[in-house]
Simulated scan of single mutants.
Amino acid sequence: MLRVYEPQDLMEGELLVGMLASEGIEAHLTGRHLVGAVGELPACGLLGLMVDNQQAERARHLIAAYNGAQPLAGDEPENFQGVLLC
């Protein structure tokens, strides 16, 4: 297994694990149990996203595409500009 990405926090790591799973890539988040020891401070390299060697390049490509994504123009309703609706 190779470490392909270092998430900024636990939420980003879990989100990326789910995104990769939806693309058929099994990923493991290492260090998730160590993050609680530092509280609200940044993880400082404790977290790591690990994938199988054969899927590492594809995983890196998908993560780079995810990180570079921009919102679609005109994708938000006119009545709620600047407000995220979930």
Rank of each mutant, 00 (worst) to 15 (best):
A73Q: 14
P77K: 10
L34R: 09
L41D: 05
A69T: 07
E57H: 08
L20M: 06
I25V: 13
Q8D: 02
L41F: 14
L46A: 11
I25C: 04
H33V: 15
N53M: 07
L2D: 03
L49M: 10
P42Y: 07
Q54D: 07
P71A: 12
G48I: 03
Q54P: 02
P77E: 02
L41V: 06
R32E: 11
G13Y: 05
Q54H: 12
C86Q: 05
L16H: 04
V17P: 00
Q55G: 06
M1N: 13
M11V: 05
H61R: 10
N67Q: 15
E76Y: 13
L16E: 01
Q81W: 08
M50H: 12
N67D: 14
L84W: 10
L85W: 12
L20E: 01
F80M: 06
Y5M: 03
L16C: 01
H28C: 03
L15M: 12
A21S: 14
G68Y: 13
L47S: 03
E78L: 15
D9H: 11
E26D: 08
E40I: 11
L41W: 15
Q81A: 14
G24R: 04
L85I: 14
P7T: 02
G82L: 04
T30D: 02
Q55F: 09
E78S: 11
I63E: 07
Q70D: 11
A21Y: 01
L29Q: 08
A37K: 12
N79K: 09
L29P: 15
L47E: 05
A56T: 08
F80N: 07
L10N: 08
V17C: 14
A43Q: 08
L47G: 07
A69S: 14
P42M: 06
V38K: 07
E12H: 03
H61L: 07
G13Q: 00
A21L: 10
G31W: 05
G68N: 14
V51G: 00
L41E: 15
P77R: 12
A64M: 02
A64P: 14
G45L: 10
A27M: 01
G24A: 02
E40D: 13
D9W: 11
L62K: 02
C44M: 11
M11P: 00
N79V: 13
Q8I: 04
E78P: 15
